[in-house]
Design a protein around this nucleic acid. Structure first.
Lengths: 205, 205
DNA sequence: TAGATTGTTAATCGATTAACAATC
DNA sequence: TAGATTGTTAATCGATTAACAATC
């Protein structure tokens, strides 16, 4: 029997709920409810309840949700009740910033390897890492079993590098390059092109 | 009479179409069609035609779309047939990378001002800019008439800085901080939290 | 118990797709 | 002209909301 299919649009909201819940935790709150959480993240209370109830009965009538419990459940659902190793490809300014980013630690991720093709960068240190030769990328990622890559290379090489990542067994790519990537079924891409983000707002200015 | 309301979900796809069209242009292509563009960006041909036709009749039966013409029209629709000045707030690793990002130039944007609250950074140069004191932010942004900000400060100060940006007249915020922002009506926020992007994929791993 | 809030159903709303006449 | 592809309509599909019984 196939696991019943949860719409991707629901999955995409869960990390946002989780972020808000952890923020509440940081403020010392113990419980919340669909109304409050909904206001926090900008969705209706009904939608919060509907989304969360896809995965179980995590709330209590009359009192709402225990924050710590819901955080635990959402973390399990999103498979971040473990630590995922990340490979960062491309050590320009953006790759550099990602490699040093402190925000992964408590959210399920850890930078594990850095790659660049520039001989001037290969072998140099960045924090506790040594930048590795992109030519070794496929065997290195394969051997480490890394499934997630942060793509920070220029648009001109992004598709070629992506093909290599797919060969290396990568299943999820966070793409900072301003280009649409073509990947086979079973590989996921999330796009973080800043110009696209800006252009989604200028329409309204 | 109110301008007929275009759904936001359509607007949000236009920058992606535009990016793909410019990529085709860079390859020397003159024309395309809804089928080809759809495959490029991962949406159906019918949806491409429906989306684009909200704004006029930009195609030709039998031949498809002239790429240069469609690029021009989409640029006008998205209001990027001009250059928008950006203020970058927070000169950590991420703000640093954004300030030096070369990808804004031909997509309608230009970094115009950098701010940080750290006395060690204030007054230092970054490329052709001098990092300014965040304490001067409100009058400086107001005076320059800047409407778009890139928020690269830590989560702990993001909401307070956002309130100042709103006071300064900013209407669009690209938020790199891992936090939900509360803003008044008329102000838009786009979120680029890398952990959220990653968590949207780990569910499927 | 009374009040509050969930989980869930049914109704509504909106977005996507299929199909095809129009026309280049 | 024949072939191709648009723009658009109607049908389908899916997501959101409203409402309320269940229950803490």
């Amino acid at each position: 029997m196939v696991q019943s299919e949860i719409p991707n649009i629901i999955i995409s909201r869960l990390p946002v709920y989780l972020r808000a819940l952890r923020h509440m935790q940081g403020q010392g709150k113990q419980t919340t409810n669909s109304q409050e959480l909904g206001e926090q993240v900008g969705v209706s209370a009904a939608q919060i309840r509907k989304d969360v109830s896809q995965f179980g009965e995590f709330g209590k009538q009359g009192t709402g949700y225990d924050i710590a419990f819901l955080v635990k459940k959402l973390s399990e659902i999103l498979h971040i009740d473990r630590v995922w190793d990340l490979a960062v490809i491309g050590m320009g300014d953006m790759g550099h910033a990602i490699a040093r980013y402190q925000g992964f630690a408590d959210r399920g991720f850890r930078v594990a390897m850095l790659f660049d093709a520039d001989p001037a960068k290969i072998g140099t240190r960045l924090g506790s890492f040594v930048i590795r030769d992109a030519a070794e990328m496929i065997p290195a990622i394969k051997q480490a079993g890394i499934q997630i890559a942060m793509l920070c290379v220029p648009a001109s090489t992004a598709q070629a590098v992506t093909n290599q990542l797919v060969q290396a067994g990568v299943k999820a790519i966070l793409n900072y390059s301003p280009i649409n990537l073509s990947v086979p079924d079973g590989v996921r891409v999330q796009y973080l092109d800043p110009s696209v983000g800006l252009q989604r707002m200028t329409y309204y200015l």
